[in-house]
Nucleic acid binder design. Structure first.
Lengths: 97, 97
DNA sequence: AGTCTATTTCGATATTTTTCGAAATAGGGC
DNA sequence: GCCCTATTTCGAAAAATATCGAAATAGACT
């Protein structure tokens, strides 16, 4: 959770979430975000440590991908006991709907 | 989102989420977390700025409450376009189920 | 008005985080 | 084996954050 507590990292993560299972190469991410490669690498590393993102080598480039199950865990963790009350329906409405 | 990127604050928030609409007085939170009142006040302030938490005065004490709609927005923001892919069903399983 | 408790603001310090550039490494292709 | 591109590690500097104690403020009750 702390892993997403930084605008750059959140941005990065959202790009990957949107990219879906196709993922995105590190180089592409660097261009998109307009930050130093080393900085990106640092953030990526944190995201990977938390399990939010995974990587796969494809020839010379590294493809990064959002880890959906972990994201859902995170969401579950947030919502947690929230439904002990009324006025809360995190699962009731689809994002797609 | 950055607002939850700190262990203390996340903890604090989760206490309030669990507390539900009953909320919790600031003093109680301070005891629970075992931190200085000023520190708590600081974190609380941030949570309130982002809209994640709201306060209501009850006699001499301030009751803090998690703002569920905002939490759900946050979750929605996270999941966002995630369902453009498969392998992702954030809304499919209830936390309560 | 005075006093008491609950909470916030002030001011400072220590830690953590973010960020960069340069150099090192990794893997692939010639 | 050598070179080339993609990415990471290293080292450092700047900025932001977390934390505290003491003092100030807010509201309630007498």
């Amino acid at each position: 959770m702390e892993a997403l507590g930084n605008p750059t990292r959140l941005n990065l993560y959202r790009i990957l979430v949107r990219a879906g299972e196709a993922g995105r190469p590190v180089g592409y991410l660097q261009e998109s975000l307009g930050i130093a490669a080393s900085t990106l690498s640092h953030h990526l590393h944190r995201l990977i440590l938390t399990g939010l993102v995974s990587q796969e080598r494809q020839a010379t480039t590294l493809i990064c991908r959002a880890n959906y199950p972990v994201m859902n865990d995170l969401i579950g963790f947030l919502a947690d006991e929230c439904c002990a009350d009324a006025a809360c329906n995190p699962a009731a409405d689809d994002a797609a709907a």
